[in-house]
């Protein structure tokens, strides 16, 4: 009995440690002072300041645009990449491609950022929206592939054979059999790519020129200047946004799984 208690104390302690800084930020977003020492009085002023800050709104929109575009592109390229790896029967080639796929997953952000910076300069591409978008697509592709491959491996080859025997064309096999089967993997990949893009700071910091900024870069430059409670308000909003994203993702996932289970039961009955 006593043992159980100690374990729970530890776990509660860890949870408090993990969440205290986040709630500390959110708590002070409602303070009327100008720093995070001592709560003055309750106010919405920091949020109001945020909503009239045109520059900030523009940066938020840019960040979202980059995230949506890059995750869409990465999902398309990654899906076909995963299909390609799946169809490669040659084992050594397949392992080599997988190893290459994972290089960007394990590389530190600075290396990715620095090498992309050299790459874009080498090509003579200007830095800005284009270079940031390309970089985000590039570092999101491997995670999409990794989310989809297990789904492909779990699919029975007989399904594809059956479709072929029944006279389906390549395109029909892909669109009516394979893609629906791996849709949950594609969706997971898209979601991961989206959050990767939103979260990224280091790579963007390297390849963004002077004209273009994402939210992370903006937070970094403001945080270096010191504390401004507007950032606290922003972090509260971002916390709620990620809560909604995660909750939405899990609900959709759950629904998909429930649907699948129902279908299975029907098929069994």
């Amino acid at each position: 009995m006593k043992k159980v208690k100690w374990q729970n104390v530890w776990l509660v302690g860890i949870f408090i440690l993990l969440y205290a800084p986040i709630f500390y930020l959110i708590f002070y977003s409602f303070s009327s002072g100008d720093n995070m020492n001592g709560f003055r009085s309750f106010t919405w002023a920091n949020y109001q300041a945020l909503f009239v800050d045109k520059r900030m709104i523009e940066i938020v929109l840019q960040t979202l645009l980059i995230a949506i575009l890059s995750s869409l592109c990465a999902t398309i390229v990654g899906t076909f990449g995963a299909l390609g790896i799946y169809e490669t029967k040659h084992r050594r080639v397949r392992n080599m491609v997988l190893a290459l796929n994972n290089i960007l997953m394990v590389s530190p952000d600075v290396i990715i950022g620095a090498s992309f910076l050299i790459f874009f300069t080498f090509l003579g591409l200007g830095l800005g929206f284009g270079s940031v978008l390309l970089s985000h697509i590039a570092f999101s592709i491997p995670i999409v592939v990794l989310m989809i491959l297990p789904k492909l491996n779990e699919m029975r080859p007989a399904l594809v054979d059956a479709a072929r025997d029944l006279g389906a064309t390549d395109w029909q096999v892909l669109s009516k059999v394979i893609l629906p089967y791996i849709s949950s993997g594609i969706f997971a990949g898209f979601f991961m790519a989206f959050t990767y893009s939103l979260d990224d700071f280091a790579v963007t910091f390297f390849v963004t020129g002077n004209g273009f900024e994402t939210l992370s870069v903006e937070i970094y430059s403001r945080a270096r200047q010191g504390i401004s409670l507007e950032i606290n308000a922003l972090s509260a909003l971002m916390f709620v946004f990620s809560l909604i994203l995660v909750a939405g993702y899990y609900l959709l996932n759950q629904r998909n799984q429930a649907q699948k289970a129902r279908r299975k039961r029907k098929a069994g009955a």
Partner: peptide, 12 residues
């Protein structure tokens, strides 16, 4: 949650 925001919290 964005890494920069967590770092920022600790500045406070």
């Amino acid at each position: 949650i964005n890494l920069l925001l967590k770092a920022y919290a600790f500045i406070g």
